[in-house]
Design a protein around this nucleic acid. Structure first.
Lengths: 151, 151
DNA sequence: GTTATTTATATCGTTCGCGATACAAAAGTA
DNA sequence: TACTTTTGTATCGCGAACGATATAAATAAC
């Protein structure tokens, strides 16, 4: 049995598990407001910059538009966002927050702190987190470059 | 705009993105053999210990059995594993590798190295990886504890 | 100005991932 | 033994993710 095949040596499995479990920690907090985690991410993007085309949202979240389109359509049905044809470019669909979407920012104020509590452990300190962020950002940049190259 | 809502301050988004992109790096290598990444994870588990009940596989991968059951059913259809009723406990379904499943280990020998190449970056060195693994393992353990508690 | 190419979004099909639920086998209890 | 509870697996439904494909609008090429 090759050492590289051991599950305990897999970086990807760790990321995959950490990502899923951390998302699960968000779930009760978000579903109380009828949201899923990817929908919450779209909200984060729009709270930073309202009225963006689908493509910009997808790029910001490193998702394909065929993932974001139905996601945003569901959010439109819930009255969280509106979708309108772009004026400059008629191909674009501009996604904007409704009042309800804006107000969710207030309703979800406690979410970051609550999730922070669920994840708090001795390996995550103000000293270690920046290095962790740096490593993940570096990995993500590297993967983006390599994945794009194969297209 | 609260600082905690900024996408660039989100650990979960980084993990989510890194996990997805790294899985995408596996994809061409795995799909060449008709496999998906979660199916590859099941293989890793069975290569370590053949003939395990669905529940043990699910626990090892931190997945629910209702995720693993259809996953393994698809692998059975492909002739990679067999599913047989347990002898001690008639409720269990024991999942075992077929010859084809065993041989995939040889066919996929180069996968870990190839993925390692796609992810190689200056933040991932023999010095930093152990700390990264430790942090992720610590986070995962913490999340498991907290998620279980809410049940 | 017409044609070819690219770009932005959408639709379709398949696989995950998981909450909710169902059901039979096993274990515990009266 | 009869009854209750727990456990292992499966089914159902829904929301991601994403490859493949379609379509219209914008851009480039000629």
């Amino acid at each position: 049995m090759k050492e590289e095949f051991r599950l305990d040596n897999q970086l990807c499995f760790r990321l995959y598990t950490a990502s899923r479990l951390l998302t699960q920690a968000y779930n009760p907090l978000l579903s109380a407001h009828g949201l899923t985690y990817p929908q919450y991410l779209v909200l984060l993007v729009l709270w930073e910059n309202d009225a963006q085309p689908v493509n910009d949202i997808a790029k910001r979240l490193c998702l394909e538009t065929n993932t974001v389109t139905p996601l945003v359509q569901r959010m439109e049905k819930q009255g969280i966002v509106t979708r309108a044809k772009g004026t400059n470019d008629a191909r674009q669909i501009i996604v904007s927050l409704t009042d309800k979407g804006q107000q969710l920012q207030t309703a979800l104020t406690d979410v970051p702190l609550a999730v922070g509590g669920a994840i708090a452990c001795k390996s995550l300190t103000p000293e270690t987190v920046p290095a962790l962020f740096q490593t993940l950002d570096d990995m993500i940049a590297q993967l983006k470059k390599n994945l794009k190259r194969d297209t």
